[in-house]
Design a binder for these strands. Structure first.
Lengths: 244, 244
DNA sequence: CGGTCTGTTGAAGGATTTCAACACTCGTGG
DNA sequence: CCACGAGTGTTGAAATCCTTCAACAGACCG
């Protein structure tokens, strides 16, 4: 197989070995939620989870569907997005393994407020919201961890609100590149490569701008030698220059 | 005392009677956090809280200060805001009695990520973050309530991100007026009056725009008869017309 | 090898900011 | 009680940022 791809991104290697039940236990232990539990407790909790695979671009759930599960990314990446009435896509977050999404709410007539889409081939575990709530009742340290993680996400959201409110598009794009670089960056010959397929449209959806403007801004960054970028990938060469 | 004020806003009546220890217990019971506790448990929890008064515009804590307390608004209103380096103010939220703010984090080198300011004369109760965490450990239902409330706030933040990303300033202002009307609105002869002092600058800080633009937009709404507004106050006459 | 999706770039038009001047409200002190 | 000043709100006009429309180039897929 000659690799004719131009992208420097690693191919996803979800071979079916990487998300089996045996591995899952280790993975659970690594999620911040459950780091306080011992092996026995973990096994008990693990029984309530079920595993699912999603292909790249597959929809995991859609905004408006009734929300009954809390999910954790085990392998791959997940995009959380909102669709507006006039067809725009707002990209709220990109999750990596260990992060949760879906619903914490007790079962009711709650609906998902966003759409979740596999960004690469992905493995996700899910648990019924009510079951998860009883886990929280049983293990208070887990509940505290959930509070902490959710509170931290709230802070990030507020950071983003600040940026959208007070910064220019160029500054926002620069900040997003830095954040992505810290979260998903891997050193490579091209600089710090963001190990995820990211289109100009994705970037636009994160920065609250149009794909064209995002493209223009990346072009200027590239001219300045700050980044290197191609179809669906971005590498950062001079992070200093992206600082506000 | 002839009242020459032009504002239709009610004067705040924090006479010292409204936030005493006896009343506090009732107030605690009404906060969503503690609705699951019985009176005995409430009394136990209440011991750990202390009460503080703030005058209108007084700073409760400042962005960057070390964060050690979780607080709950008992009487009055509190603004949460972030200051940007170039002097702009982003208004993240306006809280009413029963809502929490401050830090849930365990004591450490955590800092407040926003500034809290009294919007009217205000009474606030506060608890050491570590004490609060042990309350959460002791009473799992309280922890679940905290999770729910924080998750709901996260959703509101994401809603706001969507609005800032995909809507025009006029649409954003319209949405903010509706939200404020639902949260703080009181029927009056002038329409649904937002019972809080809100300046054009405040509104601009919420909508991510300039005070001038906010003023212009309110002017057009007023010409259309949708709202009535004056110095530091706004009343909504035709909420239907503000819908997107 | 064509078709489709993604990315680039130009140019016109629109939305919003900024600068500036002025009016009005409210509290304070003479 | 009135006058003053600071803070708040309004409005105009120019400048700027950004979007939109449009055309085209390159990359990937079957």
């Amino acid at each position: 197989m000659t690799d004719k791809r131009h992208t420097p991104l690693a191919t996803s290697d979800l071979t079916g070995q990487s998300c089996t039940t045996e591995v899952l236990l280790d993975k659970l232990k690594m999620t911040p939620f459950f780091s306080f539990l011992n092996n026995e407790q973990l096994k008990e909790v693990q029984k309530k989870f079920s595993t699912k695979y999603f292909q790249r671009d597959e929809i995991i759930y859609r905004q408006g569907e009734s929300a009954a599960f809390m999910r954790i990314v085990v392998h791959g990446g997940v995009k959380l997005l909102r669709n507006t009435m006039d067809g725009k896509e707002v990209l709220l977050d990109m999750l990596k393994p260990g992060e949760y999404f879906g619903s914490l709410q007790a079962l009711g007539d709650k609906e998902y407020t966003e759409t979740a889409q596999a960004q690469t081939d992905t493995c996700v575990i899910s648990i019924d919201s009510n079951d998860f709530r009883s886990v929280l009742q049983t293990y208070p340290p887990v509940a505290l961890a959930v509070v902490d993680i959710t509170a931290k996400r709230l802070q990030h959201s507020q950071e983003k609100i600040q940026q959208l409110s007070a910064q220019t598009v160029k500054e926002r794009v620069a900040n997003i590149l830095l954040t992505l670089s810290e979260k998903f960056g891997e050193d490579s010959t091209k600089g710090t490569l963001i190990q995820l397929p990211i289109s100009r449209k994705d970037l636009a959806g994160m920065a609250g701008t149009s794909a064209e403007t995002a493209s223009r801004i990346l072009s200027t960054f590239q001219e300045e030698g700050v980044i290197t970028s191609g179809r669906q990938w971005i590498a950062i060469n001079k992070p200093e220059e992206l600082q506000v």
